[in-house]
Design a protein around this nucleic acid. Sequence first.
DNA 1: ATGGTTTTTACTGCGTC
DNA 2: GACGCGGTAAAAACCAT
Length: 314
Amino acid sequence: MWDPKANDELYRSYCPNCGDRLIGDSEKGEQVCQACGYVAAAGADQGPEWKAIDLEEKSKRVRVGSPTTLTLHDLGLSTDIGSDMRDSHGKYLDPTMRATVEKMKKWQSRIRTSTSQERGLSIVLGRITEVCDNLNLPRNVAETAAHIYRTSVKLKVAKSKSIMGMTAATVYLACRKCGVSRTLKEVARAAGIEKGSVAKYFRLILKDVEKEYVPPASVEKHISKLVNFAKIDPRVEHLALLLSRMTNDSKISSGKAPAGLAAAYVYMSSVMRGDHLPQREVAEFAEVTEVTVRNRCRELLDNYIIRQKIGWKE
DNA sequence: ATGGTTTTTACTGCGTC
DNA sequence: GACGCGGTAAAAACCAT
């Protein structure tokens, strides 16, 4: 169960021209005002902000905007040591012992990283970029995925795990952290492995590495993605987004798959505008069934008087 | 493990082109 | 007849406990 309003704050911001809400475009990494057409540069002061840095670069850093959940920290050795300062019983070491161990660890990890582990790391990082390319994901998602993987290695979570399993799981998590709408199914397909095993690794990472809850991409992002993929008239998207915002109600969306809801909005919008896309097509692109689309539509129509609010002609 | 919820599968009937 | 659509029952998948 997820609350759509919880992550709404992450990407919502307002147009400097007319004050209307800006709509984030997950594909292009920019935000657009639906009212006046103002286009904000990538992450002016709202969404995640990043600099393209070579993946292999050692002192990697990902800059993000104000939302703290997206903040990524420095990847120096210090973090590794800080998190491991316990003895075998899980108790914290005393300060003098701590200092000694710290030195040891420093050397140990220097030796380690220059040999096999560093190589293993670069293999996975390569896979991550491959999968991200397959999914047409922006650079920052790959960066985030790489960061997640690096910390999983440090926390020993990645030890003796399937390479593709970890790859897919980190990419999927990165998508969610960056607010990009890619389903687990899609990531699994791009990585060429079972959806189930991706979920398994994903949960593992969620448990031991990324403990904060990361909400799935919003319905609105799913709408944008769906429209882009299916090459639907942008005006349908506009209407769909409008509808989704007007009916952005936890009563409707809670517990429901965002992709299904997005499909319903797009389908309804296409009908309202007279384009009338077949349910079959919309459902196919959204990777849900027609039944789900229908159910969402029905619920929407049951709970809202959409025609009047939208000004449906005819 | 389990129980509640959501999605999918598979099938049927209805109207229209 | 084929197609799009709406509905339903039951299976499967999912999620929190």
